[in-house]
């Protein structure tokens, strides 16, 4: 077991003294090697949950255990370290740096991984790009790539330093059908190789292709769906 949320609540203000509670008493468990889809209507809290899992957001109450360690006591520095070490992120709009090339974009997580030396970059980046079938694009500028190609580069960045968990937030949201399939296939391959993948999507077709589905109800609670 690597991720466990117990009674997690997330609340924030909308700036007009109104409290919004996207997560309410969420209990969630992820084991190593799981492939999980989280679905629900837009704005329900799916991305918020992913952000909490990825140590980008803090919880309001409850507990979040990562590899049996309560993350409540983590400092910001430790959270940065956790993000780099345990998680790879695939965002809806790919999140690439537009004025840098593929090599530089994919190398970003390696810069903050103290165990990886500069001389090891090339080998790791090449391997990550090969995994997403983008090895020939190493020195291309990301602005020259299509949406699907950018998303594959984003996946390469997410896996380059071999994290345990891949978090994908609507990775196919901005893509056409063909590219969508390619991306889902890439994520499935990662899972087959032992990575834990958690994908947030409102696309039920995609959700149906993964192992475990969780659905948000309108009360902000997360329920496991029967697949």
């Amino acid at each position: 077991m690597i991720i466990e949320l117990k009674g997690v609540k997330k609340e924030y203000s909308d700036g007009k003294n109104k409290k919004i509670t996207p997560l309410n008493n969420v209990n969630f468990r992820v084991n190593k090697g799981d492939f999980i889809a989280i679905t629900g209507p837009s704005g329900i809290g799916k991305s918020t949950l992913l952000n909490i899992i990825g140590c980008i957001d803090k919880i309001t109450s409850g507990q979040y255990f990562l590899n049996s360690i309560n993350t409540d006591d983590y400092t910001e520095r430790e959270k940065s370290h956790v993000r780099n070490k345990y998680f790879g992120y695939v965002l809806q709009n790919n999140g690439l740096i537009p004025y840098r090339n593929v090599y530089d974009n994919v190398s970003v997580p390696l810069m903050f991984d103290k165990k990886i030396r500069k001389c090891e970059y090339k080998e790791k980046i090449e391997k990550a790009l090969e995994d997403v079938n983008m090895a020939d694009y190493m020195h291309r500028n990301v602005n020259e790539l299509s949406g699907g190609e950018k998303q594959r580069i984003s996946i390469a960045r997410a896996i380059v330093n071999d994290p345990e968990v891949i978090l994908a937030d609507e990775p196919t949201g901005a893509l056409d059908v063909d590219n969508k399939d390619i991306i889902v296939e890439q994520l499935c391959k990662l899972n087959e190789r032992g990575k834990t993948v958690i994908i947030v999507t409102h696309d039920l077709d995609i959700a149906g292709r993964v192992g475990v589905q969780y659905v948000f109800n309108h009360a902000g609670q997360l329920l496991q769906a029967d697949v």
């Binding site: 980008i56 910001e76 520095r77 940065s80 370290h81 993000r83 780099n84 070490k85 992120y89 999140g95 690439l96 740096i97 537009p98 840098r100 970003v108 997580p109 810069m111 903050f112 991984d113 960045r157």
Partner: peptide, 14 residues
Amino acid sequence: RRELGVLLLEGAGY
């Protein structure tokens, strides 16, 4: 700003 966000996401301190 996007680059800042990416660096933070991938493990940099602020």
